[in-house]
Design a protein around this nucleic acid. Structure first.
Lengths: 174, 174
DNA sequence: CTATAATTTCTGTAATTACTGAAATATCGG
DNA sequence: CCGATATTTCAGTAATTACAGAAATTATAG
């Protein structure tokens, strides 16, 4: 696939940002490429376009598949797998946030719950420390509950809410 | 500083999670330790408690200072710097989110704006690609605008909003 | 101004993580 | 089943990142 200069810069930028989000550079680049491409691409084309080894593309695409950021399609009369990226930016962010929650927040909350339970019986740990852990757990549960309730809202409602911005504070009252 | 078994596990867990959030393990451990500690600690104590080199502690604490997750205090009659962590979990998250926004989202939005401007004149880049970039920019601006308006709400209002959960959808209408 | 304590910088090393290219495996038409 | 093509696995290598310890710098008390 031939990239225009702007497309190249986009791919590079996205690769760079990916590293800050915990993806590795080439995986993020693959995603960027597929995101910009109107047609599904096969792995060889991704490898060639980005100049990385075919085997890496295989691994990277698998990772993107596991995140549901990319899907496989087939073409009649072609044995190869073709890949398309999730086109909708909302959906991309939803997927990423969901994944991060599962991998980062959920284990922490369970851990904190364990701690809280054990701390109830613990005589050695200072009161201050207990409070800190309890406070953190409470906060994370609040945050998580909020996320759960927002996650399922239809996009239209979400968009409306976002556009309301600060006016929402008035409606809620204080 | 003497750590109880639970405190040790907390520090280890937090260190592990830190790596998934883009911090390195020991920096995250330093933060955890200070977060749990009722009193300010000096660098030597941090180094000794965590079993890492004094020089590393110096670098790590500087990083935490740059994030405003940790602050320096002084004690009368002691030349050493003492460090305390931000105690409030809300504030911790606010600081982290703010930092990530600044380091990750802001540059991306500027980049996308540049792209959008150049794409208006560009004859080579396919229409589909242009749409994808435009869509992403629009989305990120919406998200950012919402964040800006929420960020400044008093915590009380925020908490109320979070506790309302899905009921907020009804109030907004559809 | 000097001696001492505290902190930071810097360099080499260790550990981790990412990547390539070859080999192995799987898939499919005939 | 065979041959051709596509994909994945794997082992060695490269690149990156984190770390320790020594050396240098800064700050402070006397």
């Amino acid at each position: 696939m031939k990239l225009t200069p702007i497309m190249q810069r986009y791919v590079v930028h996205w690769g760079e940002m990916g590293t800050r989000w915990g993806l590795n550079r080439s995986v993020a680049q693959m995603h960027a490429l597929l995101y910009l491409s109107a047609e599904p691409l096969h792995a060889d084309e991704v490898a060639e376009t980005l100049g990385i080894a075919r085997s890496n593309v295989s691994v990277g695409l698998k990772e993107l598949l596991s995140w549901n950021l990319v899907q496989v399609t087939q073409t009649l009369g072609d044995r190869r797998d073709f890949f398309v990226a999730q086109r909708d930016p909302w959906e991309v962010v939803r997927i990423i946030v969901e994944g991060r929650k599962r991998r980062e927040l959920d284990p922490t909350i369970s851990f904190l719950k364990e701690c809280a339970a054990e701390l109830a019986l613990d005589r050695d740990t200072p009161a201050y420390t207990k409070d800190q852990i309890a406070g953190q757990l409470e906060f994370m549960e609040t945050l998580m509950g909020w996320y759960e309730s927002i996650r399922s809202l239809p996009r239209k409602t979400l968009l409306k809410m976002m556009r309301m911005g600060q006016r929402i504070a008035k409606i809620i009252g204080d």
